[in-house]
């Protein structure tokens, strides 16, 4: 067993010195099997960073990501512009072009705010959410906040 491990280590070092270890994304097509890579990237519209598949699973991944964007914005005290830019970029990786028209966005924001430890009454004091206060979207934020 010990000998086997030594051999494994030896071969990993030898082989990876010539090649590289780990794995290449199939859909990026570094492999010469191009048609296959085309199919894989198509089969579920895979995206390396954001998952993919059917609409329901895309929306689930999207909601998780928006909650994380909101959490990081609050906890790292970034500017509103940075928040909105990242939000737009993340939404686009899920194929969502107009995130303001997507109710899941605001519910997920509420979840992120809860995770970041923002008290319910403190939400309205945050830059972006201040503008939402008298808006139906604010209700969605609160809904997401309370559903955690």
């Amino acid at each position: 067993m010990k000998r086997c491990r030594v051999l494994q280590i030896f071969f990993f070092l030898a082989v990876t010195a010539v090649l590289s270890g780990c794995s290449v994304s199939y859909s990026t097509g570094k492999s010469s099997d191009t048609v296959s890579t085309l199919l894989d990237s198509v089969s579920g519209s895979s995206t390396s960073m954001s998952g993919g598949g059917d609409v329901a699973s895309i929306m689930q991944g999207y909601a998780d990501d928006i909650a994380a964007v909101t959490y990081l914005w609050v906890s790292e005290k970034k500017s509103e512009e940075q928040f909105l830019r990242l939000l737009t970029a993340v939404a686009r990786t899920h194929g969502i072009v107009d995130w303001e028209q997507t109710t899941a966005t605001f519910e997920a924001m509420g979840r992120g705010l809860y995770q970041a430890g923002i008290p319910r009454e403190g939400i309205v004091k945050l830059p972006f959410f201040r503008k939402l206060a008298d808006n139906a979207r604010y209700a969605l934020v609160l809904q997401g906040y309370t559903q955690v």
């Binding site: 859909s27 990026t28 048609v35 890579t37 990237s41 519209s45 995206t47 954001s50 686009r92 194929g95």
Partner: peptide, 9 residues
Amino acid sequence: VRGEPGLLL
């Protein structure tokens, strides 16, 4: 053929 990964826009 053109190949590009991800959920393309």
